[in-house]
């Protein structure tokens, strides 16, 4: 059983107009076996949270903490975080020219496990995982993400999720840009990884569509860098019907949060 704990996280980025605060105090605790959905309108800071957990250099943590089983994640380098068991399925996976998928997958697996995978079982595992995600076998010979379609890139992210077996998977808008068939295939992959029982999942999404295939126990609504509402799966259903309109930005959002808090008390 592992715990990923985010406490009062404040994150800013440097822009040409100066420093801009994006996350304004986010707290969240995820345990092994749980699936949390983070939902919110564009620009609410969902992806910033994902990238910050992974350690993207663009984001500066100004205060707050992220810990994995009590270990300070913020003190770790990007690769140390991945080796500690955090996996970010990226919204826009980058193309790495000249590095073949085979080479990349094996190098990453070796780094994460601390030893090279046994060649025969590894090749078999990769083939089987690719087949389940309906990725053509010849992708292993191609360069990482090079020339892949949007849907293919997302499937390859989930392929890595299944092969690397992280403690926590952060899926950054993995559903965006997928057609229904691809969405099903990708969701099945996440569910398979989850079903092994050793992973917690943080699912970041703009739409409720993917929640038909991946069932979260917890739903958090992000607006303007803060969690404005939290609840169970029923909250997602409500969002599907009503959209994000009822969360006015700025002061309005705070009012709703306060009202909801008062109602709950």
């Amino acid at each position: 059983m592992s715990t990923l704990e985010i406490k009062d996280l404040h994150v800013s980025i440097d822009t040409e107009q100066g420093t801009k605060e994006i996350l304004k105090g986010v707290s969240l605790t995820i345990k092994t076996g749980e699936t949390h959905a983070i939902m919110g309108p564009n620009g609410s800071g969902k992806s910033t949270l994902a990238s910050t957990i992974a350690g993207h250099p663009r984001y500066n943590v100004t205060s707050g903490s992220i810990t994995l089983d009590g270990e300070d994640v913020l003190a770790m380098t990007v690769d140390q975080r991945a080796r500690a068991g955090l996996f970010l399925a990226m919204q826009y996976p980058v193309e790495v020219p000249g590095v073949s998928m085979t080479n990349f997958l094996r190098t990453a697996k070796t780094a994460i496990d601390g030893e090279a995978p046994k060649l025969r079982t590894w090749t078999k595992d990769v083939k089987a995982a690719m087949a389940q995600l309906r990725i053509d076998a010849d992708f292993t010979q191609r360069n990482v993400n090079e020339g892949f379609s949007g849907g293919e890139k997302k499937r390859v992210e989930i392929l890595q999720l299944e092969l690397f077996k992280p403690k926590f998977a952060i899926l950054d808008e993995t559903d965006s840009g997928l057609d229904v068939d691809a969405l099903k295939v990708v969701s099945e992959g996440v569910n398979r990884a989850h079903a092994e029982g050793n992973m917690g999942t943080l699912l970041i999404t703009h739409y409720t569509r993917i929640l038909r295939y991946i069932k979260p126990e917890f739903v958090h609504v992000f607006v303007d860098g803060q969690v404005v509402e939290e609840g169970g799966p029923e909250l997602a259903d409500r969002l599907e019907e009503e959209g994000y309109d009822r969360y006015a930005t700025g002061a309005g959002a705070a009012t709703i949060a306060a009202a909801d808090a008062a109602a709950q008390a």
Partner: peptide, 25 residues
């Protein structure tokens, strides 16, 4: 930097990631 971040986010140490990119290049 984005190449480097992607590879490092998969657990590959910076030094190894850089070599992987140059070799690939």
């Amino acid at each position: 930097d984005e190449h480097l971040f992607y590879l490092m986010a998969r657990g590959i140490p910076e030094k190894v990631a850089r070599r992987l990119v140059v070799r690939g290049f």
